[in-house]
Design a protein around this nucleic acid. Sequence first.
DNA 1: CTACGAATTCAAGCCAACTTGAGGTCAACT
DNA 2: AGTTGACCTCAAGTTGGCTTGAATTCGTAG
Lengths: 146, 146
Amino acid sequence: MKMLDIGEVSQTVGIPASTLRYYDEIGLISSVGRHGLRRQFAPDVLLQLALISMGKSAGFSLEDIAGMFGSDGRPDLPRQELHDRADNLDRQIRELTALRDTLRHVADCPAPSHMECPTFRRLVGVMGRRRSKKAKSRSKASAGLR
Amino acid sequence: MKMLDIGEVSQTVGIPASTLRYYDEIGLISSVGRHGLRRQFAPDVLLQLALISMGKSAGFSLEDIAGMFGSDGRPDLPRQELHDRADNLDRQIRELTALRDTLRHVADCPAPSHMECPTFRRLVGVMGRRRSKKAKSRSKASAGLR
DNA sequence: CTACGAATTCAAGCCAACTTGAGGTCAACT
DNA sequence: AGTTGACCTCAAGTTGGCTTGAATTCGTAG
C-alpha cells in the first residue's frame, strides 16, 4: 500500500503541513506509521480531509467532526445524533440559500437602503422564525452559533 | 417609533446582551440613541441580526458581514464582489448537501468502517475536485476555510 | 561520506469572537 | 427618598484553531 508523507498530502489537499500535524496531534487524522521521523499517511486520509473540510464549512468544530467520523472512519456518535445533525444541516442549507438570494438581491436592487425594500425584508424573513431554542444543548456547532 | 432596549433585543433574538454590546462596539449594528445610559435600538436591528446570523452560519467573519450589509443597511462592497460571494455560497450549499447525505448514510450504513463503503466514497467524492485555488485570495471566509 | 532538504518536536504566539467581573449609573416603582 | 434591577464601561480572560521559530533528525542524491 502506497504511503504518503506529509508534504504530498499537504500539496494534494492544499492544507499546510503544520495544520496536518496539528490535526494528527488532536487525533482528527492519524498517520499509519513513521519512515524515520516522518509521518506516513494512508491514501484514505485524503478522503478524511475532504470530509473535514466539509464539516468545517458546515460550522462544526474539529471535535464535532472527530465525533462524526472518527480518525478511523467509525463514528462514535449514536445514529440519532447523526440524524439530528443532518436535520440541522437541512435547516442551515435553507438559510444559506436565503442568504445567497439576499446577496444577489442586494447586489442588484437599486433601493438606497435595503431596510426599506420589501423584497429584501421578505428574503430575510425566510429565517425569521425562532426555532425551539433547545438547539445549543450539546455542542453549539449544530446551531451554527459559534 | 418604538425603540427596543438591549434586553428586549437579546430576548427576542436569543443573543446575549454582551454580544450585542460587542457588535455595537465594532460597528456591526448600531443603536439609535440612549435612554439614560441604555442603548436604544430600532426594530430594524432584528432584521440585521437575522442577516448576521445567516452570515455567520455561512462562515463569514463579522467584518465580512459588516461589509455586505453595513450597519446602516448599505453594502460597501461592489456588486461584483457580492455576486462572487453568492456564487461561493452556491458551492458551499452543494458541499453541505453532500455532507448531510453522508451523515445520513453514516448513520444508517452497517459497514464497519466507512472507508470501505463505496456509497460513502462516492458521496464524499462529490467535493473531491480541487477548485482553482485562487479561492483564499481576499478574505478567507468566502472559501469556508476558517 | 557529506551535504541538502524535508520533516520533526516543543513552546510560544496570534487572531477572532466573545465572556466575565468589578464597580458605577440611572429610571421607575413604592 | 430609597431601593431595585436592568443597564453601563473598561480591562482582562478564554477558547478554538492554527502559525511561527529555533533547534534537531533523518533519508537520499551526489
